Computed example of a mutant assay.
Amino acid sequence: MGRPTAPGGADQPTEVFAAVGATATAVAEKPAPPPLGKGGVAIRTAGEVLITLGLIVLLFMVYEVWVTDLFSAEKQSVASDQLEGDWAKDRTLHPELVDGKAFARIHIPSFGADFNFTIQEGTGEDSLAIGPGHYKGTALPGEPGNFGVAGHRVGKGAPFNDLDNLSSCDQIVIETQTDFYIYKVLPYDDEISGWSSGKGAQPECKGVSTLRNPSITGGGPYDQTFGRKVVLPSQGDAVNPVPYKPADVLPKAQMASLLTLTTCHPQFSAKQRLIITSVLTQQVPKSQVADYGKLLTEIGGAS
């Protein structure tokens, strides 16, 4: 057989594929954008600055929320080991309080059996970078008056991140060398009316009253003491012996034994302070219950 013959009889090779681009037409290059004027340059520069600032803020947030948590976790571990060592060496009812040194633990059963942090003396940044800190000059655990404790809500371990999830009658346990002190959150302001016949009558609220004195007009010295309040940072009287009242409003022997926890509010802001106040309802010597796990069983775990 001969080769295929092209139309018209000319003897030519068969073209199987046409050459790519053989019939393409030239495309004009895209014109360059016009030069930016002074206004355009300023807008572009401002945009670049904002993007840079946004990245800096993002990196700062990552550092504050996660990196400082890692540092504080290590410091908390060291403080916890030191506290255990101190307790094993010398059992004393009232430890010597040293700035930045742990002397107690806080447990909140409703946050889980593994929630516990050492409490350091003082509320300076060095103390709070380890864990919750004791307001100097306020009562000690179990004493009449007000045991005040501050803690971070974001970063640095964030021990008090979930304080706003606490409800009235929830338990807060303070552990010392010799005892477990069980506090319960006081009624919120909207629960005061009808407390004794309402929630206050429930088993988990045993020992929790409104602290009001019905024989005194207005309710007496504790008329402003509620389980939860949000105040300005300047309102330091939240940790007074009787909250929000002058220090000498009551003789010490007539004071309730309170525990007040404070933290920033809302999250990622220091504009306000969240105040959680609880009242002592039970003291359990460690000679009766050796560890926190057994105590949880005895008191029924989370309230």
Results as ranks from 00 to 15, higher is better:
residue 158 A to C: 04
residue 204 E to P: 10
residue 140 L to M: 12
residue 64 E to C: 10
residue 150 A to C: 02
residue 267 Q to M: 07
residue 152 H to R: 05
residue 93 L to Y: 15
residue 165 N to L: 12
residue 8 G to R: 08
residue 89 K to D: 15
residue 136 K to W: 14
residue 10 A to R: 15
residue 20 V to T: 11
residue 154 V to W: 05
residue 217 T to H: 14
residue 80 S to G: 15
residue 71 F to C: 02
residue 252 K to V: 13
residue 165 N to C: 04
residue 75 K to R: 14
residue 45 T to D: 07
residue 271 K to M: 13
residue 238 A to W: 07
residue 120 Q to W: 04
residue 147 F to Q: 06
residue 123 T to H: 02
residue 163 L to G: 00
residue 17 F to C: 13
residue 150 A to P: 04
residue 30 K to N: 15
residue 270 A to W: 14
residue 62 V to H: 08
residue 57 V to Q: 12
residue 233 P to T: 11
residue 104 A to N: 00
residue 98 V to I: 11
residue 56 I to A: 09
residue 235 Q to L: 10
residue 144 P to L: 03
residue 126 D to T: 13
residue 26 A to E: 11
residue 192 I to T: 02
residue 249 V to E: 08
residue 104 A to G: 00
residue 246 P to D: 02
residue 127 S to M: 00
residue 131 G to T: 02
residue 199 K to F: 05
residue 123 T to G: 07
residue 25 T to P: 06
residue 300 G to I: 02
residue 254 Q to L: 13
residue 10 A to S: 12
residue 73 A to S: 09
residue 19 A to C: 11
residue 173 V to I: 10
residue 246 P to G: 01
residue 297 T to M: 09
residue 85 G to M: 04
residue 11 D to A: 14
residue 56 I to C: 13
residue 100 G to S: 03
residue 205 C to D: 12
residue 237 D to E: 14
residue 6 A to G: 09
residue 224 Q to F: 04
residue 49 V to T: 09
residue 211 L to V: 00
residue 20 V to G: 13
residue 123 T to P: 06
residue 182 I to T: 08
residue 44 R to E: 14
residue 165 N to K: 15
residue 126 D to Y: 09
residue 18 A to G: 15
residue 292 Y to M: 03
residue 105 R to H: 05
residue 146 N to M: 06
residue 131 G to A: 09
residue 25 T to Q: 12
residue 285 P to C: 07
residue 161 N to P: 04
residue 238 A to I: 04
residue 153 R to G: 10
residue 93 L to S: 12
residue 55 L to I: 14
residue 216 I to G: 10
residue 65 V to C: 11
residue 221 P to C: 11
residue 205 C to I: 06
residue 207 G to R: 02
residue 75 K to E: 15
residue 1 M to H: 14
